[in-house]
Structure formats: structure tokens, C-alpha cells
């Protein structure tokens, strides 16, 4: 896979399709897989792709990179890139998606991540080039519904207690926000001080406020890459909340995030025919 990735990238440079490529490399000293930006064809030989490439590089896409920029994407990463294009962060032609046939990644080095075990999209739907054998990818072993079933079946009071306890260790470090490819607001609501929506220090009220706002802002936008969860140094299961909302959005709006360009985007557009009654449209339920 590494060899064909490198050939593909060199080819993109040769044809002038990219000026830079975001990808993964193995750090020669720490042996850890880290993100890298290459701007020369010959550096393509440092690129790798394997089950250690857990990070979602979509966050590292910034407009100050030499454009057009190529980006090595897994299925989930590609959906995030697609979403960022839809939201206007980039023009379609500024980004070249190098879609890897991804069988899943192993953050712990041993077993596939939970998100990978239920992955339905091993190859990015946004793909300018595809690398690897897409016919030999695993089928999902479980579903998102199974993952969130235990929360969905809780009575409201119990569910509220569950989340309050889950948010307790949060220190408001906002690492979840910083690594999220779709936390792309120019100024985050937590950083605004006029008015101050969310207090800076950790306590039950502000923890709940932060995680609720965070989750709402991700409804219909979360691509299930799980970076927030992985970044959290205190192990707050905030991604579960995103999953619950993703399930609702899919059900209510018949919508899967970042799968196709264009169309209706529940969180992003106003529609008088909105199925929710308070927006004036006919209520579906």
C-alpha cells in the first residue's frame, strides 16, 4: 500500500495536480506515526499508510498551505473534508482527496478501533484518486445503534445522571475542539466573552453547557472519526453524544454527513418546509 501511495502522490505532483500533500509518516526517532506536509515529489517516499494512521488530518487543512493540497484520507477523514468543502472552507478544486482503502485503524496497536468495527465507509466518498484494493474491505461487525443502545434506552432522569457523571472529569481544556475537523468556527462560542456563554472553569454547570453546545453544533456534521474522544486526556465519552445526534439526524432528515456534495444539509440551511413544526413547516411526526 505504501508503494502505491507514494507512486500516486508522485504522479499528482508530476501532473501539477497538487502543490503539497498532507499525509502520514513514521517519525524516524520516536517511530510514532505523525502528520506531515510534503511540498516536493521526492519527499513522497516518506509517506506511509497502515493501521497506525489513526489521526484525522482534515483538521490540518488550512488555507495557508500551498494549494491545491492533496490529503491522504480514510473513509471518515474524507467525509470530514467533504463537509468542509460543503461548508465553504475550501473550493472543491483546492483539495485533492487521496482515498485509501482503509480496513480500519488500531489506536491501541492491537485491535481495530470501535468506530472501525462498525465502519460502513472504508473508502472516502470524496475521492480524486483511490489507493489500495477496495474490494477486500471488511463488513461492519456491529452498528451505531448497538453502540448507543444503552443510552437510548435509559429513562430521561437516568440518562441525565449518566451524562452529568460522564462530563465530571472535563477540565475545559478544549482539546476535543482543537482536534475536531469540523470545529471550524472562527471564534468558538467558549472564547467569546461578550456575552460569556460558557464559564472557563470546570464545574457541573459549565461542563454540561460546553458539551451540550458542542454536540448540538455537530448534529448532522459529525463524521464519526472519534478524534474528540481520542484526544480527551480525561476520557470524557463526548463522542457518544455526537453519535446519538447523528442517529437522530439520519432518522429525521434521511441524511448521512459528508457522503455526497450538494443536497440538503440539516444544520446549515433554512428551509420553510423543515419537518420541525416550530420552523413553520409541516410536522412529520
Amino acid at each position: 500500500m505504501n508503494q502505491s501511495l507514494r507512486e500516486t502522490v508522485k504522479n499528482l505532483f508530476a501532473k501539477g495536480k497538487v502543490k503539497s500533500v498532507l499525509g502520514y509518516r513514521e517519525h524516524p526517532l520516536s517511530q510514532a506515526v505523525v502528520a506531515t506536509l510534503i511540498t516536493r515529489s521526492e519527499d513522497a517516499d516518506t509517506l506511509i499508510f497502515d493501521d497506525r494512521c489513526v489521526q484525522n488530518l482534515a483538521r490540518a487543512l488550512t488555507r495557508d498551505l500551498p494549494l491545491p493540497v492533496g490529503i491522504v484520507v480514510k473513509g471518515c477523514d474524507g467525509r470530514a473534508v467533504s463537509m468542509r468543502i460543503t461548508e465553504g472552507d475550501f473550493a472543491r478544486e483546492q483539495v485533492v482527496a487521496i482515498a485509501m482503502a482503509c480496513a480500519g485503524v488500531k489506536a491501541d496497536g492491537k485491535t481495530f478501533d470501535e468506530r472501525c468495527q462498525r465502519c460502513e465507509m472504508h473508502v472516502s466518498p470524496l475521492a480524486d484518486v483511490t489507493v489500495g484494493d477496495v474490494s477486500a474491505l471488511p463488513k461492519p461487525e456491529k452498528t451505531r445503534a448497538e453502540t448507543i443502545a444503552k443510552i437510548k434506552t435509559m429513562p430521561p432522569a437516568e440518562r441525565f445522571a449518566f451524562w452529568q457523571k460522564a462530563f465530571e472529569p472535563c477540565t475545559h481544556c478544549y482539546a476535543c475542539r482543537e482536534v475536531c475537523p469540523l470545529c471550524n468556527c472562527a471564534v468558538c462560542v467558549t472564547d467569546q466573552n461578550a456575552p460569556r456563554w460558557i464559564e472557563q472553569t470546570a464545574k457541573p454547570s459549565s461542563n454540561l453547557m460546553w458539551h451540550m453546545i458542542r454536540a448540538f453544533h455537530h448534529a448532522g456534521r459529525c463524521v464519526d472519526c472519534g478524534e474528540c474522544q481520542r484526544a480527551c486526556p480525561e476520557g470524557v465519552p463526548m463522542h457518544l453524544l455526537d453519535l446519538c445526534l447523528a442517529e437522530d439526524v439520519e432518522e429525521l432528515f434521511d441524511f448521512k454527513t459528508g457522503v455526497k456534495q450538494g443536497g440538503k444539509w440539516p444544520f446549515l440551511m433554512f428551509d420553510p418546509q423543515d419537518p420541525d413544526s416550530w420552523l413553520g413547516g409541516p410536522h412529520r411526526g
Binding site: 505523525v34 490540518a60 477540565t171 478544549y174 482539546a175 482543537e178 482536534v179 484526544a231 486526556p233
Partner: peptide
């Protein structure tokens, strides 16, 4: 700048 690509400023390093 090159190293900046591999950092997303999450700040976990400084918090701990």
C-alpha cells in the same frame, strides 16, 4: 512551520 502541520494546538501537553 513544518512541525506545525503535525500539531493541532490541542494544548493537552501543557495541561499535564
Amino acid at each position: 512551520r513544518e512541525l506545525g502541520t503535525s500539531c493541532m494546538n490541542c494544548g493537552v501537553c501543557t495541561q499535564y
